[in-house]
């Protein structure tokens, strides 16, 4: 790896980080705020591509990385399927706070 490329990557990472932190001060509504993860995902991609040189090892390296991501996606997607579609009926007699007490 050439020093220039490394330096450039480092600078870009810090640049994206600056944009990410800066954007967090914008008046973004609550539902849209998880979009602030997008710059982070870009940074993760840069670290994998340049620092970890994912393109250089044997092919199976890309396969393993893809498997990790695919299974993470399964966990997050199917794992949040039920909570995001569940209807919680409030129980009037409950005294302590419950998920039903603070509906989103």
């Amino acid at each position: 790896m050439s020093p220039r490329r490394l330096l450039l990557t480092w600078g870009l990472l810090l640049g994206v980080l600056a944009i990410e932190v800066g954007a967090s001060f914008l008046p973004i509504g609550r539902p849209a705020r998880p979009l602030l993860l997008l710059p982070a995902l870009l940074m993760v991609g840069m670290v994998a591509a340049i620092f970890m040189q994912i393109g250089r090892g044997p092919t199976v390296v890309r396969l393993f990385a893809a498997a990790g991501l695919l299974w993470l996606l399964i966990l997050l997607a199917l794992g949040s399927l039920d909570p995001l579609t569940r209807i919680v009926y409030p129980v009037p007699a409950m005294e302590r706070a419950t998920p039903a007490a603070n509906p989103p």
Binding site: G57, V60, V61, F64, A65, A67, G68, L69, W71, L72, L75, L76, G79, S80, P83, L84, P99, N102, P104
Partner: peptide, 25 residues
């Protein structure tokens, strides 16, 4: 790399807890 793929799922649980807990509150 395969070990790291395993680690992704390890931290994945935290990400899912983040999604679910934030969703309810």
């Amino acid at each position: 790399w395969l070990f790291l793929a395993s680690e992704v799922l390890f931290f994945g649980v935290l990400f899912l807890s983040w999604i679910v807990c934030r969703h309810w509150n």
